[in-house]
Computed example of a mutant assay.
Amino acid sequence: MNYSIENKHLKITVQETGAELCQIQSTVTGKDFMWNADPAVWASYAPVLFPVIGAIKNGFVKYKGREYAVPRHGMVRNNANVELTGQTTDSLTFTLKYSEETLAIYPFEFEFQITYRLDGNKVVVDHKVLNHGDSEMLFSLGGHPAFKCPLHDDEIYEDYYLEFEAIENDSTWLLAKNGLVENTTRPVLVHTNILHLNSHLFDNDALIFKHLISKQVSLRSTKSSQVITLHYQDFPYLGIWAKPNGHFICIEPWLGIADSADSDQNFETKEGILKLEAGGTFNAVFSIEIHE
């Protein structure tokens, strides 16, 4: 089941399965801004990442003497147990709660809510995590939205670039073929706020930034006026990714990161892991702003 809301600027549609944003469309021009999830290339639109980001070393984490096979990117993505639990004229809220099935692979009594809200020309994505257990809960969360690139038939991928709000000096952390983060880096942003896109930028998988100054980044074209800006104030990590020769770009705000190649697999010491007290609530928001 898909659910849609719209205002005078935008229409969005969200799949109940996985609470996945699958459409951002201008209500003025009809232009679509999201990737179409072509299964021949990459069959997703904007996976929701919880309670882990990316790959887990050897496919499991260790917690209090047990092993838990948390799936890559977590358990919300493609999950048919996600339910629409709230709808207004300008918002949609989806919820996934713990069950016997989730406790077998993730040992916490969680409730995960994600709300998509229209605010003028912005799509606000609000994450809420509740700990219903009687002990501290460990988790990560993040977004993985894929934007159409190029947006127009007369453009090519190389016409596009990412513009960060600040001059950056940051390197990407290299990924092994199994998706784990290695202890080596490669310079990407060297005293610049511009990252030009090209078909080989992701030949070695995603770009992973840990030390950006910027808290917003815009997808721009040298040939057209549309701008997509992602604001990620609450998120310390940023991933940039596409399939080689895929006509999209993923801009991924993360609270957490894939396991490192030398991880001891201990969930409590995992890089970027968040801790939520018993009975506690956690919120994090990013937004997608569209300028035509």
Results as ranks from 00 to 15, higher is better:
residue 238 L to Q: 05
residue 129 V to F: 01
residue 34 M to F: 05
residue 35 W to A: 05
residue 238 L to I: 04
residue 131 N to S: 00
residue 77 R to F: 09
residue 136 E to M: 12
residue 217 V to D: 05
residue 154 D to E: 15
residue 212 L to M: 02
residue 225 S to I: 08
residue 19 A to G: 14
residue 22 C to K: 13
residue 95 T to R: 13
residue 244 P to K: 11
residue 52 V to K: 07
residue 272 G to A: 03
residue 143 G to K: 01
residue 280 G to W: 02
residue 24 I to C: 08
residue 144 H to Q: 02
residue 84 L to P: 06
residue 90 D to A: 09
residue 250 C to P: 00
residue 44 S to V: 10
residue 204 N to E: 14
residue 102 T to D: 08
residue 133 G to F: 06
residue 206 A to N: 02
residue 235 F to Q: 01
residue 156 I to G: 09
residue 125 V to Q: 05
residue 89 T to I: 11
residue 203 D to H: 14
residue 249 I to L: 13
residue 100 E to G: 10
residue 1 M to A: 15
residue 270 K to L: 05
residue 188 V to S: 01
residue 15 Q to L: 15
residue 143 G to V: 03
residue 274 L to E: 10
residue 251 I to V: 11
residue 279 G to Q: 02
residue 239 G to H: 03
residue 249 I to C: 06
residue 270 K to D: 04
residue 83 E to D: 13
residue 250 C to Q: 02
residue 57 K to S: 08
residue 250 C to K: 00
residue 95 T to D: 08
residue 67 E to R: 14
residue 219 L to G: 07
residue 40 A to V: 09
residue 202 F to H: 05
residue 97 K to C: 11
residue 91 S to R: 07
residue 84 L to G: 07
residue 42 W to A: 01
residue 282 F to Q: 07
residue 85 T to C: 12
residue 203 D to R: 12
residue 282 F to A: 10
residue 183 N to S: 13
residue 259 D to Y: 03
residue 230 L to C: 07
residue 260 S to Q: 13
residue 17 T to I: 15
residue 81 N to T: 11
residue 285 V to A: 03
residue 233 Q to H: 12
residue 55 A to C: 08
residue 97 K to I: 12
residue 35 W to N: 02
residue 141 L to R: 06
residue 10 L to W: 01
residue 71 P to L: 04
residue 130 L to P: 04
residue 231 H to Q: 11
residue 239 G to S: 09
residue 38 D to P: 06
residue 265 Q to M: 10
residue 47 P to Y: 05
residue 128 K to H: 07
residue 72 R to G: 01
residue 181 V to G: 03
residue 76 V to T: 08
residue 27 T to Y: 03
residue 151 L to R: 05
residue 37 A to P: 00
residue 54 G to M: 00
residue 4 S to M: 06
residue 207 L to K: 02
